[in-house]
Design a binder for these strands. Sequence first.
DNA 1: CGCCGGAAGAGCACTGAGTGCCATACGGGA
DNA 2: TCCCGTATGGCACTCAGTGCTCTTCCGGCG
Lengths: 251, 251
Amino acid sequence: MSSSSAAPRRGEKTETAAAKPPMRDALVAAAFQLFLERGYEQTTVDDIVALAGVGRRSFFRYFPSKEDVVFPDHERSLADVTEFLAAGDDADDPVLRVCEAVRLVLRMYTENPTFSVQRYRLTKKVPGLRAYELSVVWRYERAFAEYLRRRLAGRRDGSLQADVVAAAVAAAHNNALRSWLRSDGKGDVGTEMDHALGYVHAAFSPSPAPADPGNAEEPEDVVVLVSRRGAPLWRVVQEIEATLGRDPGQV
Amino acid sequence: MSSSSAAPRRGEKTETAAAKPPMRDALVAAAFQLFLERGYEQTTVDDIVALAGVGRRSFFRYFPSKEDVVFPDHERSLADVTEFLAAGDDADDPVLRVCEAVRLVLRMYTENPTFSVQRYRLTKKVPGLRAYELSVVWRYERAFAEYLRRRLAGRRDGSLQADVVAAAVAAAHNNALRSWLRSDGKGDVGTEMDHALGYVHAAFSPSPAPADPGNAEEPEDVVVLVSRRGAPLWRVVQEIEATLGRDPGQV
DNA sequence: CGCCGGAAGAGCACTGAGTGCCATACGGGA
DNA sequence: TCCCGTATGGCACTCAGTGCTCTTCCGGCG
């Protein structure tokens, strides 16, 4: 019901990664059936394992906590994202690379729209699940920020830029995703996501100094002119400082 | 040890809000003493109440969960932030208003540096506390985003801008705050915070249409020119679209 | 002076999540 | 057939969190 595994026979070991045991899927299916019937908090782990016909101890072998059964694919998705970022070429725009990475996360949601919508309804109602989802999203954001920190190393305010851009990309992703989930998975998320990411990318001057000259990408020319009157003076000074410091020699 | 209450005598009711019972502070003090001695997870609630000399049930009267005792001031701080944002004039720059609001959060940390540093060391080590802190930060971010959503209503991509700006402001705040906490509370957080917020504010063209003409602030003139070659065409189109759509008539 | 009523706390029993440990069943290889 | 590693089931236990009741304290009031 939940994931993409296609009937791995028991005991079969695929050469690359672990084949998903059917028990895991059975637990997810049983859990969601009960969660949708009675609600998350009204369902105990004993109820789930009773419906799935397995022992209680087995549940916690597959899911470290009751909350984990609601997000069965995030571990793999997070691994995909970090791998994707680690495999990146040093020539491409770091911000764009993160935008590409966040589309991997989106893909995990769109692979199974009905499941994602059901889960969204759950997380919207249950505070505990909302908190858990936050910690999941935070791990993606950390992966983005650490990648950007590596790529922006040496740049002035590189650490700050990494954190802010990672948060902005994640927020844009969440905005488009939630809009899509609210509409029951109808509409074109991809386009909406690109629009949101385009907004973020335009807001932050990307302009990486390409390590490999002669590659396909040329650095962007960005001009930012900020003029303010009547505002608190210290604010203006900081804005100018930040604008100038964002990428020296470019403004 | 923890908060700012100055010995409210028992039974005394201040006219405005609830006077803080000393038991609450005693519980926080006992909890932190044990947390620092043996660690968070190695300390049970029974240990805390035994040290504080109160009944176990009383602990949960003051703190809904064991995690809450680590963040005893956030509820008040969150209330301050929402109140501050609700009291805002419709004339001022919404992004700057949020930047001011986030300084209220910073103030809560700087009011008691040693306490904040101790808590930072705890949250850095304990995953459960990290998750809890995320949910706390998320509530601030939601307050920012909802305020911005109100102020940017009607604007194209107003909801998106609200989410992204709120996330960026929160990320800038966290970046400066964490840097300060890592250095044991030494250094000038305020300046660092202003620098980070200035970066965020410069990245997003703030330009509110002032509801009250003739107020102190004039709208900013912002010109953003993005030129890219060799990049995926759809990306360029989205960037231009996002840049143009950010505030019609301004670019 | 004694009674009363509400608020704050203590004590207790209970549910449910999560863990450690051991027994058992299955399946492949020697 | 035996052996061994793995997957699973079955306890028993700790601990967070909750509902309930009883007590205590305190201020007001007849």
